[in-house]
Design a binder for these strands. Sequence first.
DNA 1: ATGGCAATGTTTCATTGA
Length: 258
Amino acid sequence: MKLASWNVNSLNMRLARLIDWLASNDPDILCLQETKIEDAKFPVAPIEAAGYQVFHAGQRTYNGVAILARRGLDVVDIVPGVDDFVDEQKRLIAATVAGIRVICAYVPNGQVVDSEKYRYKLTWCEAVGAHLKNALARHPLLIVAGDFNVAPDDRDVHDPALWAGQIMCSDAERAAFRSFLAAGLVDSFRLFDQAPKTFSWWDYRQLAFPKNCGLRIDHILLSTPLIDRCLSCRIDRNARKGQKPSDHAPILVELRDD
DNA sequence: ATGGCAATGTTTCATTGA
């Protein structure tokens, strides 16, 4: 089974690319972030025509998450939002797909360390940490995929000195990420040997992509019973190339079927 | 081989992203 996650930075702008990517990569499940579209306007028809069921929690302009599941897969218990956390922002949706609980998350950006948005980011992460503990207690087979807006350590940063203490690299953000892992999850990317300087996001400005000035901030976390089933984890850098790319590349894992 | 911000709506600038 193949599961992927992709921050598309506007589903409307990226719809043609998404359909192409689905055809080339053939994932069973795809988690999307930053759809930036309200539910009533979600492009359900072209995604269904591409062979997928889709479950979404969106809003106008900002945020928005969705889970795509190949047609025919059993999907139950679709729940948007974070447990015990009232939030206008559509940043999390969960569904059980073919017996695996899938949580699609878009962690807040945080803008600047110690800003109001930064405090919201940390508060949101704290609530999600509790949510994940609940979810793991109920669902031993759990995947958390999304844009975490945290580079877990300096290997995940093109220039660690430049980014030291900055947004996505601050101690508190990295501690929040580690707290997700402490709940009983692993970073699937680090289960495998990876090329140095592998990133998932590059700024649109200053030739960041051709110079590979990026960060690894998109992640797929697996509960411990899924570790042995994980065959690969890679980031599809090719999706960042060409005309009108998202600033994020997709990340994919392959799981052995049991 | 990649490309020099992009997307949105408040629309000809401001806001946000990361």
